[in-house]
Nucleic acid binder design. Structure first.
Lengths: 221, 221
DNA sequence: GATTTAATTAACCAACTGGTCAGTTGTTTG
DNA sequence: CAAACAACTGACCAGTTGGTTAATTAAATC
């Protein structure tokens, strides 16, 4: 005879509750990673009891997987269209980067989750979320551009990693950037994100393009 | 009358034990962050008992602080010399980047610790370890280069962040890169680190330099 | 070589954490 | 409207975790 009456109990809505838990999980996992995130905190943040997590997801780890998948699904879907082997490499590169940054703007926790997954969890779900495909798409574009002499003679794989680094780091550092930068603007506000995208695209394209080619694309300083 | 005899007890050496604990802490914190790192694991890795941690450092958090300081001290020391206001911006930029990557080669856990500190711990020790100074040094160099028309018209602060991203991301992603790259070389082996440094310098300098200037420096593709 | 000092250990503890479950109650169905 | 269903809760549990402490003993001191 353990449990008694119980509170009014929020409106019963399977989909809504599941979504609330998942959203809360996303935030907590992005902030603390799988190991350090607390199920109780996730429950409180989503406004339900801990039991719901296990009712809907079975375990902390399964919830983590679900959160990962939800966050990275939109990214994965969009990679493919930039892999077209006959597109202009510079345009394709700008396209991927802008798309990645665009999607990340709506999921600012994604880079942090990627970091946690790589460092802390040793990439157990790395293939599962299909992230390697981003490297492959980038490396292919770079390789094609290099052969066409549009891009400089950089190593495609190293450069692909460097590009992903530029795309991810800003969001991870954002929390602290505000106190370092002059002006004190919030790095995650819309105007700053827009500026970051333009700056990143310009930096990346100039970084890879051959000198006589650098006036070719649309990126603005 | 709780404790009994006790094992032979390793050779008693204050400095050596302290150092062993600190080294183990560095690895564990770099892999799991402050929250998820376990004191028992740190103790086992350093070959002593958990009590030693509290004997020498007082608490998990103080140990974390000590580990942070030890890792970032060499970086901080070397920033200043590149801040000279009359040096050539391109050379200064290459100098800072190479120095940062050089030091990081010896402390591969540094980027991961920085990441954990920023994301998980919300940068409580961010100012303490003096990391903002790296951004300031970079931004100053970029600003000078821009005014001298050696660098393109990029925003210095955004670009400083992007440069730090390039310097850090490789080390954080290294664990998983091996299975993604063709050839399967260990990204942390000496030759790869050397290559990464060259690639990063080339990418970064081309990313910021004005077009007619890009043959000016020593970076190699 | 006896005394003092402090490095080291094993056992211990209170608080916490992932996970379970009996029971409650809003909702749906026949 | 009664019965079946399932969303939801709160108490509970076993294992873990940061931290403490009395006892032990290798060295330093005299």
């Amino acid at each position: 005879m353990r449990p008694r009456p119980g509170k009014p109990a929020r409106t019963r809505d399977r989909a809504a509750t599941r979504a609330a838990v998942l959203a809360a999980a996303e935030e907590e996992f992005a902030r603390h990673g799988l190991e350090a995130a607390r199920t109780e905190d996730i429950a409180q943040r989503s406004g339900v009891t801990k039991g719901m997590i296990y009712h809907y997801f079975g375990s902390k780890e399964k919830l983590y997987e679900a959160a990962l998948e939800q966050v990275f699904a939109p990214l994965l879907l969009s990679f493919q269209q930039f892999a077209a082997p006959h597109s202009d490499p510079a345009q394709a590169l700008e396209g991927v980067v802008r798309r990645v940054l665009e999607i990340t703007s709506d999921q600012p926790g994604a880079p942090a989750m990627l970091f946690f997954e790589t460092i802390q969890n040793r990439g157990a779900y790395y293939e599962k979320i299909g992230f390697p495909s981003l490297y492959h798409v980038l490396a292919n574009i770079l390789e094609r551009g290099r052969k066409q002499k549009i891009f400089r003679a950089l190593d495609s794989w190293h450069t692909a990693v460097n590009i992903v680094g530029v795309c991810c780091f800003y969001y991870c550092a954002a929390q602290r950037l505000q106190s370092v930068w002059p002006g004190g603007k919030n790095p995650l506000q819309r105007s700053m994100l827009k500026q970051h995208a333009d700056q990143a695209v310009s930096f990346i394209l100039s970084g890879v393009q051959a000198e006589h080619m650098s006036a070719n694309t649309s990126h603005k300083g």
